[in-house]
């Protein structure tokens, strides 16, 4: 495989590993927010912001953690036949079907960008009493879908390498 591709694949792997590890710890931020929600409610003055902030954190958690979860192989496949194939045969099929995955993620990114532009144009705020701006969470979506596309491309290059009898 060309050197530039090998570098790309390794860079993407490392980047998504780092982002994913960061997202992984958002779990504890989420717990903290929900604990605060419990405590402030018990104290008789429930917080305005906890529910929405928890929702935003959850978005960061699973959207930014997505590429890392693919690296770990935890995105399920219906592996009726797939499980019994050789590595080469899997690589052949994956090299085609991953294009469908990339297409899906591309359309999601398109929608996310559209929605982010809308958010920035109209200074969109959440229609709640806390009224947070919505563009940060929408940009997180954009970033997440973009990183997922990068990770899928890395898988594609790996499959091509496997087909050519090489490993990255």
């Amino acid at each position: 495989m060309p050197r530039s591709i090998i570098i790309f694949v390794r860079l993407v792997d490392r980047l998504n590993y780092g982002v994913g590890r960061f997202a992984m710890y958002l779990l504890f931020v989420l717990m903290g927010i929900l604990l605060w929600s419990t405590i402030s409610k018990a104290g008789g003055a429930p917080s305005l912001w906890t529910l929405e902030m928890a929702q935003f954190t959850m978005v960061g958690y699973y959207i930014l953690g997505g590429p890392y979860s693919m690296q770990m192989g935890s995105q399920v496949r219906m592996d009726l036949a797939y499980a019994r194939w050789s590595d080469r045969k899997r690589a052949w099929w994956d090299a085609f079907t991953v294009l469908a995955l990339i297409f899906y993620l591309g359309v999601m990114l398109w929608g996310a960008v559209d929605s982010s532009i809308y958010s920035l144009t109209y200074n969109e705020r959440s229609p709640t009493a806390w009224r947070p701006y919505l563009w940060p969470v929408k940009l997180v979506f954009c970033l997440g879908f973009f990183l997922m596309i990068l990770q899928s491309l890395a898988f594609l290059f790996r499959d091509i390498a496997t087909i050519r009898g090489e490993t990255i």
């Binding site: 693919m70 995105q75 399920v76 496949r77 219906m78 592996d79 009726l80 036949a81 797939y82 499980a83 194939w85 899997r90 099929w93 994956d94 085609f96 079907t97 991953v98 469908a100 995955l101 899906y104």
Partner: peptide
């Protein structure tokens, strides 16, 4: 059936 990830 191709074994691609279910969500994709």
């Amino acid at each position: 059936l191709t074994g691609q990830r279910v969500f994709g």
